[in-house]
Design a protein around this nucleic acid. Structure first.
Length: 267
DNA sequence: AATTAAGTCAACCGCGGTTCA
DNA sequence: GTGAACCGCGGTTGACTTAAT
């Protein structure tokens, strides 16, 4: 199927935006919104393609953009989420209010990748020491490492908090959320899991879950119980909406069932 | 002070998914 | 059912800035 070019190249401007262009774009969106990005530049009198306008608005001009350096909490959140989600920048950005996927992507490639690699190196060193001291732990470590994010390259699977067990998955959230989740909320997750604690071992032998398994928040946003046939030894999974209130709408549990067994993983 | 290398980040490109006629 | 149009995403580029020599 032939695809029309995203915009007519003739006469359209490229490169950095001028303050005047910004002003025009902001004024137009304030007045008319952006129901159709392709038509917008023409209506606004901008010599840009719709794509360029959209990008400029999303990444720079939107009023709810948070500018400035990333906090330590935000950086840790990105590392943890990247460990879980891989390069799904928009999904990561959805959990960091005011930050854009582009900004997060840049910060990852410039700062955090190295940081995470250093942590990995440290962990590997520590693991080696542990292995030398106690070889009987090997099996447990390895089986626990076989989780949903295990498909990540070594480069991305760095975080000690998020990568070692499902307990720690529950700590992966935004800096904002970290501030909001108190120990009781953690207990909620842990309690759910402890009900199934005796089942955990049997789930450790599950096949690696492909990245496509993870659903976007937008998908599960409106469904408190999204269930599906999963196959590959799993009969069903469900994504449950954790309503903590106070901005915690993006917190989910994942229920995985296999035969009579089931396990709820906080997400 | 001049040059080069490394780091940063805004913007572009191309692709896949979705919608609609 | 098909194809065109559109949107959103992730990868990449390249201009600019800063640090090192």
């Amino acid at each position: 199927m032939g695809r029309a070019p995203c915009c007519e190249k003739m006469g359209l401007k490229k490169g950095p935006w001028t303050p005047e262009e910004d002003r025009i774009l902001i004024a137009h969106i304030k007045k008319h919104g952006h129901p159709n990005w392709r038509a917008l530049p023409k209506q606004a009198g901008l010599l840009r393609c719709g794509k360029s306008c959209r990008l400029r608005w999303i990444n720079y001009l939107r009023p709810d953009i948070k500018r400035g350096n990333f906090s330590k909490e935000e950086e840790e959140t990105i590392i943890n989420l990247h460990d879980m989600l891989g390069n799904r920048w928009s999904a990561i950005a959805a959990r960091l209010p005011g930050r854009t996927d582009n900004e997060i992507k840049n910060v990852w490639h410039t700062h955090l990748k190295k940081k995470a690699a250093a942590v990995l190196k440290q962990n590997q060193k520590a693991n080696n020491n542990n292995n030398n001291n106690n070889n009987s732990d090997d099996h447990k470590q390895n089986s626990k490492a076989t989780t949903a994010h295990d498909h990540q390259s070594a480069e991305s699977a760095m975080s000690p908090q998020a990568s070692s067990s499902s307990d720690e998955l529950s700590s992966v959230t935004t800096g904002e959320t970290n501030n909001n989740i108190n120990s009781d909320q953690y207990c909620m997750d842990k309690h759910v899991k402890s009900d199934h604690e005796q089942n955990v071992d049997s789930f450790e032998s599950f096949p690696v879950i492909d990245e496509s398994f993870w659903t976007d928040t937008s998908l599960s946003e409106n469904s408190s119980n999204l269930t599906s046939d999963f196959g590959g030894g799993l009969n069903e999974f469900a994504i449950g909406h954790h309503d903590y209130g106070g901005g915690m709408d993006f917190w989910y549990n994942i229920l995985v069932t296999s035969g009579a067994d089931s396990l709820t993983l906080p997400f």
